[in-house]
Structure formats: structure tokens, C-alpha cells
Nucleic acid binder design. Structure first.
Lengths: 227, 227
DNA sequence: AGGAGTTTGTGAACGAGAGAACAAACTGAG
DNA sequence: CTCAGTTTGTTCTCTCGTTCACAAACTCCT
């Protein structure tokens, strides 16, 4: 997925593990809210919806933060994972495209609570400028470079229609944004070293539909055979 | 991911391949719109953002729909993939939770164009009932079973806050909905045979943040070494 | 102190997915 | 008809990820 460019000095953590760390983090936060101070790999795995062996192996890539015979200290492990992911620091983010989805993203509380701060909402449509969404000004798309430089933005979110997405991505790359979260239903082409993650709502539904169809086809066949 | 319950009579397609079929489908639709009648695996692979060998292997699970020395007929392959996924038929869908995200989902045109028809928007808040969003009535959550039965709903979308999500999922399962797309930041526990896919906005950002951090840490280190 | 009972961290087996490479099958020119 | 050129479908290998199983390390009770 992500291009490994430079020579990895840090021990590298498998991509599959990285994708699960935020899940563990959320589970730990929930446990902490319930005033639970210690948990076993089994308990944490259940809370995160994974196998306990997998959880232990994942955590072992970060270091040895548990105590045998006891388990993990919730607060301590929570901090270690947060530090590893990088959510102990503040991440300025720009969102481009203030349609329905852009609105939803701007209002999503899960961003702010994880250290992601929306510093600007950008839209090409002049009618939307000077609007205020979720306490943030909507600015002209042309100001992207300026805003990115000013706030040190490293992460950009694309919530435009498919047609505009590639242009937006190009401009983001020019502006020095090397990590992009793309909600537009398009394959983006970007230079090496730029990290793109894609979220596609209709693809998720299609995958579900495939499984539904397979299930119903299988049961119809079973019924036929038993007749 | 998905629990394989029944004895698979159909040749089974690897999960990784299933996840890519909708991408191929979209690429084919784009090609068709550009009046391209034939394409090679290389061209289609580029349009879909994958390796051509992987594409050919994926397609080979569906059957042998290409012609050696020629390539694939765009329209024919498009139909075959659509049929395999199941998007040639109509899929009634309910969305629960009409916040910002629910609104965005209800308005998302990519659903309707792929055969997903939103038959109802449900919300527990009585103030929202009889509102109309994207041409669809907002109904009380209590009517879930009734509506699901009436329209033969097989797929449910959860766009509620985290706290409500498990209850909603339980009710969906009771109502016979065995495929759930969950946008709430929670791990759902469901009986075997129920298929849950999760989309988590803040997790995607956290994964990006991890890579940014690693990149900047690596370059800082490189700079240090060269000094 | 010692032993029974837990629970972590990890080595090793296993399975799934990615990519290279090539034979099979087609087209079109001569 | 034959041969060169093209492109698919598939086999093989390698890498990555998952799971099992167990030694190491800790607690607590006697």
C-alpha cells in the first residue's frame, strides 16, 4: 500500500498491524472510561473484536508493555499505542469539498478527539466562501498552498465529486501534502512517496451485496437439493 | 472477515478479489462512457490502479471472459462482473441515524446508480420523523421490522452514534437483516452468519498519521546522520 | 521458600495473496 | 498456410499475515 521510500531505520511494523492499532487504542479508551485499570490480552482482544494471539503479536512489535501473569496496564498501554501512532501530537488537516460528505466530516467529533484539527475547509464554489461550517471558515480552493504552508498541514481529505479529485490531489501534492484520505470514487495517481488511503461507500455496499447474493444462492440451492 | 457458514457449492472467490471487483466495475463503466469497446488487461489494470497480473488472476476466478491476443470486450466484461457482484438486481437498503453522516449517505448518488435503493431512513428522535431527506421519509426506528419485511431489506446501514450502534445492530438482526455496514466507531457483536463491514473515518486518519510520523522521523534521522 | 495457576511474548506451522514467468490461443501480414 | 506479434489464463514461487502452542515470567497461596 504505502511506498517504502527511505531506508527503514525504525523496526518496521507490519501494515496489517498498523491498521489495527487504532482499534486497540479505541478499546483501551473505552476500558479506561469504565475505570478498568488492568486487562488481559483476552479481554482487550474481545473488546477489539480480534483473536488474542493476534493482539499479543501485534503488541509485541511495539515492545514488551505487558506483565506475564498479570496483563496490561490500560493507561500505560494506551499511551504507548497513542505515541506509536502519533496521536499524542496535533495534526492539522484540510478538507476539500464541502458537500454533504464534507459537512459530515467537518462535524465529526472523532477527528478532534484524536488530535486531528481541521484548520480549513476549501471549496471551489465561490457561493460557499465565507460560510462557516462546524466553526471553521470555508475558503477558496486557491488558498490551499498558502493555508497548508501557514499551518504545516501534512494530511488532506478529498470529499469532492470524482471529476475534481485528481486535480485536488495534484494541488495537494504541490502544496507539500503527502498523505491523502480520498472519499471520491476515483483512482488517484500520485508520485512515489505520497500516501493515499481510499474510502469508498458504494464499494463497501457492493462487497456486502456480493455476500448476500452468495448466501441466498447457496440456500436456494440447498432447498432445491432437499426437495 | 466474513463467516463462511454454509457448505460452499459455488467456486469460491478469494475475499481480496471480491474487494477489487467493484473497482474493476467502476473502471469498466468509465471506459464504456469514453466509448472504448475493447481493452487489454494492462489498460484496465492501469485504470483500476492495480498490477495487470493481479487483474488477470482476479478475472480468472469469474471465468474466461477475455480473448487471447485481443483483450476484453468492455461491455461484456462489465456485465459479467456486475452479475457476479449482484448489482444487476435491486437492493433495498435502510439507513439508521440521520445525523450529518446519515444525510450524506442518503444523498449519495453512488448508491442509487449501483442498484442500491434507500427505502427508509430511520431515527429514534421523534423530532425528525416526517422530515423528508433526499426524497425519502424519515420514520421512527421502531418501524424497522415492519419496513424490512415489507421491502425485503437485506442490507442495513448504521450511521448512529457509537452508543446506539449495538442496539441498532441487534434489532437489524432480529428483523432479518444479515448484512450491515457500520459507520459507528464501535465493534459490533453479532451472531454467526451476519456479515458486518466497518468504515471508520478516524481510524483511516490515524493510519495516515502513523505513516507521516514515520516518514518525518526517518528524514529527521537522516538529516542528523548527515550532519 | 516452593508450587500451583495465570498470562505474556515468540518460534514455528500454516494459509492466503502478490507477482513473475510462460504456455496456450488468438490476429494479421505475407 | 505459416510465422511473427500480442495478450490471456495459469502455474510456480515468494512474501506477508494468521494461528497454534509453549517456554518464560509473574502472582498468590500455603
Amino acid at each position: 500500500m504505502t511506498a517504502r521510500t527511505s531506508n527503514d531505520t525504525a523496526r518496521d511494523i507490519p501494515e496489517a498491524t498498523v491498521a489495527r492499532l487504532p482499534i486497540y487504542l479505541r478499546a483501551l479508551i473505552t476500558l479506561a472510561e469504565d475505570s478498568i485499570e488492568t486487562c488481559s490480552s483476552e479481554e482487550l482482544a474481545t473488546a477489539a473484536g480480534v483473536n488474542s494471539a493476534k493482539l499479543r503479536k501485534d503488541l509485541s512489535y511495539l515492545g514488551s508493555y505487558g506483565t506475564r501473569g498479570v496483563g496490561y496496564d490500560v493507561e500505560y498501554l494506551r499511551y504507548q499505542i497513542a505515541r506509536e501512532i502519533g496521536v499524542t501530537q496535533d495534526w492539522p488537516v484540510v478538507i476539500v469539498g464541502i458537500g454533504n460528505l464534507g459537512h459530515a466530516l467537518a462535524n465529526y467529533s472523532g477527528f478532534r478527539s484524536r488530535g486531528f484539527r481541521v484548520v480549513a475547509l476549501l471549496d471551489a464554489d465561490p457561493d460557499r466562501h465565507d460560510e462557516v461550517v462546524a466553526g471553521v471558515d470555508v475558503r477558496p480552493f486557491d488558498e490551499l498552498e498558502e493555508i497548508a504552508a501557514e499551518h504545516g498541514v501534512a494530511i488532506g481529505v478529498i470529499a469532492t465529486p470524482a471529476l475534481a479529485a485528481q486535480d485536488v490531489a495534484d494541488r495537494m501534492v504541490t502544496a507539500g501534502i503527502a498523505s491523502i484520505l480520498n472519499f471520491a470514487p476515483t483512482v488517484l495517481s500520485v508520485p512515489d512517496g505520497v500516501d493515499v488511503r481510499k474510502v469508498d461507500l458504494s464499494i463497501e455496499l457492493q462487497i456486502l451485496a456480493f455476500h448476500v447474493q452468495r448466501k441466498t444462492a447457496a440456500s436456494a440451492l440447498a432447498q432445491e437439493n432437499s426437495a
